[in-house]
Computed example of a mutant assay.
Amino acid sequence: MAPGGDTDRDDLGQVAELLANPCARDILVYTAREAFSADELAARCDASRTTVYRQLDRLEAADLVVPTVQFDPEGHHFERYRASLDRVTVDLDTDGLSVTVDRTDPPNDAVDRLEGLFNRLR
């Protein structure tokens, strides 16, 4: 899907299918405010880790969530997810249906920049 632009009919189906899933919707709502790990999302969504990971994979493939690497003080790392979806608009006109997906840029603070640098060096 093109960021911020009209998508084709296949993308309309993909977005509609994703948004029809209650777990995917919950993930988008929670991660719109702040980044969460899959385990945190499983607890908040009252869903299994497998279900959450499946929905995160689908949302990430559609560019609706963005993973970031989080480091803990002991040197371990894990992924946290943040929604990149801002708005979905469906328009009906004489040419048919079109969908516009507006995305937000993920936060780019010092930690994000350092993590990005670290990932590029690996």
Rank of each mutant, 00 (worst) to 15 (best):
A2H: 09
P3N: 03
P3A: 08
P3E: 05
P3S: 04
P3V: 07
G4E: 10
D6G: 05
D6N: 04
R9D: 04
D10F: 10
D11S: 10
L12G: 02
L12M: 06
V15Y: 12
E17H: 06
L18P: 00
A20T: 03
P22C: 14
C23G: 05
A24E: 07
A24G: 02
R25G: 06
D26C: 07
D26A: 08
I27H: 04
I27W: 05
L28Q: 00
L28E: 00
V29L: 12
Y30Q: 13
Y30I: 04
R33K: 15
E34T: 08
E34K: 14
E34F: 05
A35Q: 10
S37C: 09
A38M: 03
L41D: 05
L41A: 11
A42F: 04
A43Q: 07
R44W: 09
T50I: 08
T50Q: 10
V52Y: 00
V52H: 01
V52L: 02
V52M: 01
V52D: 00
Y53S: 12
R54T: 09
R54F: 05
R54Q: 09
Q55C: 15
L56I: 09
R58I: 05
E60N: 13
A61C: 01
A62I: 14
D63T: 10
L64A: 02
V66D: 09
V66I: 15
V66W: 13
T68C: 02
T68N: 05
V69Q: 13
Q70T: 13
F71Y: 12
F71M: 09
D72F: 03
P73W: 11
P73F: 13
E74S: 15
E74C: 04
G75S: 01
R80M: 12
Y81A: 03
Y81W: 15
D86A: 13
D86P: 01
R87K: 14
R87F: 05
R87S: 08
R87D: 10
V88D: 03
T89E: 09
T89L: 11
L92D: 03
L92I: 14
D93P: 00
D93W: 09
D93Y: 07
T94W: 06
D95P: 00
G96M: 14
L97I: 08
S98P: 01
S98M: 05
S98Q: 14
S98D: 10
S98F: 08
V99T: 10
V99D: 00
R103K: 13
T104V: 08
D105S: 10
D105W: 12
P106G: 15
N108E: 13
D109K: 12
D109G: 11
A110M: 07
V111W: 08
V111F: 08
V111Q: 11
D112C: 06
L114K: 15
L114D: 11
E115W: 06
G116R: 13
R120Q: 11
R120C: 01
R122V: 12
